[in-house]
Write a protein that binds this DNA or RNA. Structure first.
Length: 724
DNA sequence: TTGTTCCAGCTTTTT
DNA sequence: GCTGGAACAA
């Protein structure tokens, strides 16, 4: 048997992980250390060497992209297709289980998946129906609350009503929401996971079946799992020590949405026979970048402990640019990118990473002005567009009449004379009699209590849906979509739209038809599902790539969060300012601050060859000028790894009376550097945090061990420098 | 029904 | 200070 292709490309630690006998395993994989490679080769090893049938292997990821990439790489390595191998996202796998066992999961077999936008709309409606003031009980907050409960495995019926008004109200909404979802056959993302967990927990035969089927379970990005995901994994692997997880506690940046870094510690408790392997050799970045990142992350407490290293040399120092303002910052970055391109660098190898999306604008403007093509990640995805969601809502109503979310969405889109009054009546009747909106509409018509006009309009709508259902029943999927898009009146609606947007929407609808035509059933084949159901599920679970075309060579703009897992030759980490990064809302809480620091670590380790850090001394934020201090993370980088870029001579400093002295500049004086340890006769030992002013006005800010942070006039302070 | 005005909100995001 | 959504007027 030829195993050299599986083994040869691996270093020692990787090889150890890949070839280990079946057992619980925790692979702590640092950034750029070949995490995916280990997973891919491990699975290939099990199939080819340990002769575990592919259908007995499960691999779970968080994103569709990661799942796809993993499957492709395994197929390339093994030189064979792997349809039997279960690789998918937590949500995708959970969905598959629910489709296979709808009765045991207590779901109608027409159930549909609802994305978070749908969920929000449903909750918004619900709050209105409950006659609650939605300014006092914002739908977003309720949505967050409900999902947080579900992520912890808590159902409304598990909760005890307390005296707390907030809790009582949230519980009321949660309850009503659960009822509505059950009635409509709607399943949100968190529900997929929770149901799948309950399915296994409450049906011993099903649990036995899958426990026996899956000889090996692999998990990618384990540090991002939440409570219910981990509980589900434990059920599947209960008593079998066959859970292989790969993760990096230092790259846990999704705590705010329920990810439990603690799962890594729990894993070690729950699987006492586990083995830990650390992957610390980095194949991406220069030694300098790694050193800087290592030093920063070392400030976090409670780490598993890892230090990245490389044998490819130090490379250039990291560059730091103190911009005058956010305009100057963007100007600087674009100039550097221009230089990079003129030296033969590819645009797509350059990335601008920021903490929050709002920061992208200056860079877009400057790039546009410089005629450098760029792509901003994280906008609306294809299946999230309103026109697409409308078309899908028609299709969903065809597939499941009780889908209230879709019913509401399209009952008057395009407008067909069904007003708020009629819709309100339907809603209340539905709620009073526990009917779906569709059912309530029929009752309402039969009651003959509405005006003739409203009744006719409503009848027309119901007839339209019935007609669409009937006339498309024998059509191919793409013909169905085409028929619905045209006959629903959506095309017509958008054609009439005056602004330039209308054409685009029509094009998108045509693109939807095309997507249906290209939809690959074999790949997605799930037993018991119609083509339409499969397509709708695909739309909900994979809202389309916001990935740019790989063909386009353009500069990449994205948040640091969305850059996780990617790498670029040259990276600009911009807006390195207090209250922006770390975010204002995270500075008061140690845990959240540490997550920001991990985010910084993630951002820095995206860079392969060169890392630029920039901050602005003045920034317009929310319409007001602010004078932020440089990010504390900058101070955590050893100064010798940083080279400050100064092109200030070419930039005119407008005179701003508010900012007479340069605040928070990181430039070094002759004697003192940031991070320099000093000693003061009265205050004792401390560390230089900031330096400002010139000559006799020169002041330093020092964090004294004994007395805290103080500003001192350098001329009088008589500081003594200490070795660090 | 459409266009206008007003007002809150303002990290990060995948499924 | 800008944006998106909701409320309002015509």
């Amino acid at each position: 048997m030829d195993v050299t292709s599986i083994i040869n490309p691996l270093n020692n630690a990787q090889r150890q992980a890949v070839t280990a006998p079946s057992q619980a395993m925790l692979v702590l994989a640092g950034a750029g250390s070949g995490k995916t490679r280990v997973l891919v080769h491990r699975i290939a090893w099990q199939i080819q060497v340990e002769e575990i049938p592919a259908h007995s292997i499960l691999a779970v990821t968080f994103t569709n992209k990661a799942a796809k990439e993993m499957r492709n790489r395994i197929e390339t390595l093994l030189k064979m297709p792997t349809q039997n191998l279960w690789i998918g996202t937590f949500h995708g796998i959970a969905h598959r289980l629910l489709r296979r066992h709808p009765q045991q999961a207590k779901l109608p077999d027409t159930f549909q998946v609802m994305d978070s936008g749908d969920q929000l709309r449903v909750i918004k409606r619900l709050i209105n129906t409950l006659n609650l003031d939605d300014t006092k009980w914002p739908p977003r907050e309720s949505q967050w609350y409900i999902n947080a409960q579900k992520d912890e495995g808590i159902r409304a019926r598990h909760m005890i009503e307390t005296a707390d008004l907030y809790q009582r109200q949230m519980l009321k909404i949660y309850k009503a929401y659960e009822e509505l979802c059950d009635r409509s056959g709607l399943v949100d993302f968190a529900e997929l996971l929770l149901r799948a967990h309950e399915l296994l927990r409450d049906n011993q035969d099903i649990l036995d079946f899958y426990q026996q089927r899956f000889k090996q379970v692999h998990v990618d990005e384990f540090q991002d799992t939440n409570t219910i995901q981990y509980a589900w994994l434990r059920l599947l692997t209960d008593g079998k020590d066959n859970l292989f997880v790969v993760g990096d506690d230092d790259q846990s940046i999704y705590g705010w949405r329920g990810a439990k870094i603690e799962n890594i510690y729990s894993f070690q408790k729950h699987y006492p026979n586990h083995q830990v392997i650390k992957l610390e050799q980095n194949y991406r970045s220069t030694g300098t970048i790694l050193k800087a990142a290592n030093t920063i992350i070392a400030n976090n407490a409670g780490r598993m402990g890892k230090e990245l290293w490389t044998d490819t040399g130090d490379g250039d120092p990291c560059s730091l640019y103190a911009a005058f303002n956010e305009q100057d910052e963007a100007y600087f970055v674009v100039e550097r990118i221009r230089a990079w391109i003129s030296e033969g660098g590819a645009r797509s190898d350059a990335a601008i990473l920021y903490r929050s999306n709002a920061q992208s604008r200056q860079f877009e403007e400057k790039l546009m002005a410089a005629a450098i093509s760029y792509r901003v990640y994280g906008g609306l995805r294809f299946f999230d567009r309103a026109e697409i969601k409308n078309a899908l809502a028609y299709l969903r109503l065809i597939a499941n009449r009780n889908d209230d979310a879709s019913f509401e969405r399209i009952i008057n889109t395009p407008t067909r004379g069904i007003g708020t009054k009629t819709i309100d009546d339907i809603r209340h009747l539905a709620r009073d009699q526990s009917l779906s909106l569709w059912g309530a509409a029929i009752v309402l018509i039969n009651q003959r209590t509405m005006s003739q006009r409203a009744t006719n309009a409503l009848i027309n709508f119901l007839e339209l849906i019935k007609a669409l259902t009937k006339e498309t029943s024998d059509l191919e999927l793409y013909e169905k979509v085409k028929f619905v898009v045209e006959k629903s009146g959506l095309i017509e609606l958008y054609q009439k739209e005056k602004m330039d947007k209308g054409d685009e929407k029509v094009e998108n609808l045509e693109e939807l038809v095309n997507a249906a035509r290209l939809f690959d059933f074999d790949r997605e084949n799930e037993e018991g599902m119609s083509e339409l159901d499969m397509f709708l599920t695909h739309a909900a679970l994979e809202s389309g790539d916001n990935q740019g075309d790989d063909f386009d060579d353009c500069v990449q703009l994205m948040t640091i969060h969305s850059a996780k897992g990617l790498e670029f030759k040259i990276v600009f980490l911009v807006g390195m300012e207090e209250n922006l990064f770390p975010s204002q809302q995270s500075v008061d809480d140690v845990g959240r601050l540490e997550e920001e620091r991990r985010l910084c670590y993630v951002g820095m380790t995206r860079a392969m060859q060169h890392l630029y850090l920039t901050y602005a001394e003045s920034r317009r934020l929310y319409g007001r000028e602010s004078y932020p201090r440089p990010s504390r993370f900058l101070r955590e980088i050893p100064p010798e790894l940083i080279q400050e870029v100064r092109i200030r001579a070419t930039i005119n400093h407008p005179i701003t009376p508010l900012n007479p002295i340069k605040k928070g500049s990181l430039e070094t004086t002759g004697t003192y550097k940031l991070g320099q340890r000093v000693s003061h006769a009265k205050f004792g030992e401390g560390i230089v945090l900031q330096i400002e002013g010139i000559g006799a006005q020169e002041r330093v800010q020092i964090n004294f061990k004994a007395v805290g942070v103080k500003w001192l006039m350098l001329a009088y302070a008589n500081l003594e420098t200490l070795q660090s």
